[in-house]
Design a protein around this nucleic acid. Structure first.
Lengths: 138, 138
DNA sequence: ATCTTGCTTCGACATACGTCTATATTTACA
DNA sequence: TGTAAATATAGACGTATGTCGAAGCAAGAT
């Protein structure tokens, strides 16, 4: 994907460290399984909104009652979705008194964005290492 | 989620543009539906590997025959998964002669990473706008 | 023309998933 | 102790999804 066609040539030969895991080299079976579990958890509109509601809630956390009201779904259904997000490692829940508070695990989102971001570092508005090119680690 | 707790305060008051859509404000129903369709497409190990294989293949594209060999799955199944990725807007296919070549749509990955990245910009190694803070557009 | 090869579509099937109601569990409070 | 409120779990049910084999469609080869 470098020299012989019309696309950007970053002048890198040992490129792997610079590219995302996704586009740099074929994902191996186990990493794909691992990653797909997280994406699958986000592959439902209700769960995405839950994630977003939790993340954007004041204090970075939200109790289940805050979340249940937003949807026209029963408690058990919300509880189920929260469990899926929890088991995907995207959120964590803590009981305080009668209520259970959920918050997003930032590392999880971070790892995910790592998978996607570098793929398009040249096309995005993210300030890429400017006279970069020489950045290749080792 | 800014001043009153122990977390990073970027000194921003009108913060939305700086945060990802996901953590900045609750995702509205239609955007969540839209996004979740893409995540759902990536929520399968085979499809993730297909995406990765296409992206990392020489020339940035791969023909279906290149992909089929990698898996112990029948042609129709691979074809089905490619269709899902296509309909999610993640890849595009072009017929040249007998073969069909697929390539990843970089904007799609870009948009996705936009959703995730800024959420953790402070914890990642991505060079964030340095004396930034003033970056808030309008 | 007909055959072959590469890929897609169709139809069927088993399993996974989202939702519900009913029931359990945990904690607070009278 | 008992009752009420907030979540979670269990079980059931319909729909969606991943997989396959068989059949269809293009495009080159004979």
């Amino acid at each position: 994907m470098s020299k012989q066609d019309g696309r950007v040539d970053l002048g890198l030969t040992s490129v792997q460290e610079c590219w995302s895991p996704l586009v740099g080299e074929p994902l191996d079976e186990s990493r794909a399984a691992e990653l797909s579990r997280v994406f699958k958890a986000m592959g439902d509109p209700v769960r995405l909104r839950l994630l977003s509601l939790i993340a954007s809630h004041a204090g970075g956390e939200a109790c289940v009652c805050d979340l249940t009201d937003v949807f026209e779904l029963t408690g058990p259904t919300i509880s189920h979705h929260l469990k899926v997000l929890r088991e995907a490692g995207l959120i964590t829940g803590e009981r305080r008194g009668t209520w259970v508070y959920y918050r997003v695990l930032p590392e999880a989102l971070g790892r995910l964005s790592e998978v996607l971001t570098p793929a398009t570092v040249s096309e995005l508005s993210i300030p890429a290492p400017a006279q970069g090119d020489a950045v290749v680690g080792t």
